[in-house]
């Protein structure tokens, strides 16, 4: 029974892996990739590694593949151009494939199965007492024996993250930004002027229409919609100072 389930998972895994590279539409490719991840998770479950299975689904299917799909969905696909590309890159791709295949064969030929499973590092786990779940076992190993490697992995990811932010961060002065703390500090008296108007005369008698108090323009970015020129000049100093603080 278990073997049957294994072969079902393995067959679908290999088949969907093949579909990833042969599907015409890139979106279909990504969807097949997700199917492949799922079946790999199923194989992990069969092997009793439930923690790895769940993490595979959470990290790869739930986050990485979503971003893949996100990008691929927005591509403007031109199938004729893709054909041209195929002919251009086919020899190169075939060469890389051949090298990889040769390496796999070389590794496979010299593969030897050790008769006894060596368990030098997991030996300490038995002292914990009680049944050890594989989450616990993994945690114990990662945070004792492999602590340095684990932390280094984290550092590599941190560097990648900072790199991505540096590449994409653009500090455009024309962009619309909010300074939330400034907005929260605004009182009603700062923005509104209450007028006591005689009936039927409107606001003209009191010097023009009702408009926000001048301090409104301090939080607005100069040149953006709704900031009149005159006020902008008048408050140039203030605006510039705000800009420097940012």
């Amino acid at each position: 029974m278990l073997q049957l389930i294994f072969y079902v998972f393995a067959t679908i895994l290999v088949a969907s892996g093949a579909m990833v590279i042969s599907a015409r539409n890139p979106v279909h490719s990504v969807l097949f990739l997700i199917l492949a991840f799922f079946n790999a998770a199923g194989l992990f479950l069969l092997a009793g590694a439930e923690f790895l299975a769940m993490i595979l689904v959470i990290v790869y299917v739930g986050a990485v593949a979503v971003l893949f799909l996100f990008v691929v969905m927005m591509l403007d696909i031109d199938f004729t151009k893709m054909r041209e590309g195929l002919q251009k890159y086919a020899p190169f791709g075939a060469a890389v494939g051949c090298i990889l295949f040769a390496e796999l064969v070389m590794a496979g030929l010299h593969w030897m199965f050790s008769p006894v499973m060596p368990l030098p590092i997991t030996g300490g786990l038995g002292q914990m007492g009680g049944p050890v779940t594989n989450t616990g076992a993994l945690g114990t190993l990662i945070y004792t024996h492999y602590l340095l490697l684990f932390q280094l992995c984290g550092l590599v990811l941190l560097v990648a993250m900072i790199g991505a932010i540096t590449l994409t961060l653009r500090d455009r002065p024309t962009g619309r930004r909010q300074i939330i703390s400034l907005q929260h500090e605004r009182k009603r008296a700062d923005t509104l002027e209450m007028m006591d108007l005689p009936l039927g005369q409107g606001t003209d008698a009191n010097g023009g229409f009702l408009r926000p108090h001048d301090s409104y323009y301090v939080t607005a970015v100069p040149g953006s919609y709704g900031v009149p020129e005159a006020v902008e000049e008048e408050h140039e100093e203030l605006v510039v100072r705000e800009g420097e603080e940012r």
Binding site: M54, F70, T133, T135
Partner: peptide, 19 residues
């Protein structure tokens, strides 16, 4: 044993229906 991870996995898949 990994119930909460299962829940997290399933809820992170929900985005695919929408996408």
């Amino acid at each position: 044993n990994v119930g909460i991870l299962y829940l997290l996995a399933i809820s992170s898949l929900g985005v695919y229906g929408t996408l």
